[in-house]
């Protein structure tokens, strides 16, 4: 892998690691903005493919970052992207875990927790919107997504069954 790609992967994922308040899903919209429109590493469709694999594969959905790295530059890209995306936030959280043992439930910590929650929720909702807007299948994608949400909220089906159902619907109607 060339040095420039290496540095670009770091430049994309290190800041996003520290900004992923509330989880990896919060920054998917911005990963999309950078790697599709910004750097031109892949098309909208290819990005949504990676997102699909990241959710279908075992492990956390944030492995999307590693898959982007793999797509761009093979195994070295996957390793660099993983370290860049999981490393910085992990160091911060490790420090926090220590601090928390010393000062449990301090007012400052509670305020940080409560203050970050709505920011995180807004980012997660934005991610959904951006992904649906770039998904192949237009109205069908919106319909499958909303029905899946409804099925989960009402406890009608498990996550894995819904992923299979989505694939089946697209195979028949897509």
């Amino acid at each position: 892998m060339d040095v420039q790609t290496f540095l670009r992967l770091l430049a994309v994922f290190v800041p996003l690691s520290l900004l992923s308040v509330g989880g990896g899903q919060a920054v998917v919209a911005d990963i999309h903005r950078q790697v599709v429109a910004g750097l031109g590493w892949m098309t909208d469709g290819q990005f949504v493919d990676l997102f699909a694999v990241s959710r279908m594969a075992p492990g956390p959905g944030s492995l999307l970052a590693s898959l982007v790295g793999w797509r761009v530059s093979g195994w070295s890209g996957a390793v660099i992207a993983s370290l860049a995306f999981f490393g910085p936030s992990s160091l911060v959280f490790f420090a926090l875990a220590h601090f928390w043992t010393v000062h449990p439930r301090s007012r400052l910590m509670q305020a940080v927790e409560e203050g970050l929650a709505p920011v995180s929720a807004g980012l997660m909702l934005a991610t959904i919107f951006v992904l649906l807007a770039s998904a192949d299948g237009g109205i069908l994608a919106w319909a499958v997504a909303l029905v899946s949400t409804l099925a989960l909220v009402t406890n009608r089906a498990g996550p894995f069954a819904l992923l299979g159902l989505g694939a089946a619907v697209f195979l028949v109607l897509g």
């Binding site: 991610t127 997504a145 694939a167």
Partner: peptide
């Protein structure tokens, strides 16, 4: 591509459920 697009759409639904809970 159909399988991935279908899984992707359902997966977005899973994320939406999580986002709604967080909201």
């Amino acid at each position: 591509h159909q399988v991935l697009a279908g899984v992707g759409a359902a997966a977005i639904g899973l994320s939406l459920e999580m986002a709604l809970k967080a909201a």
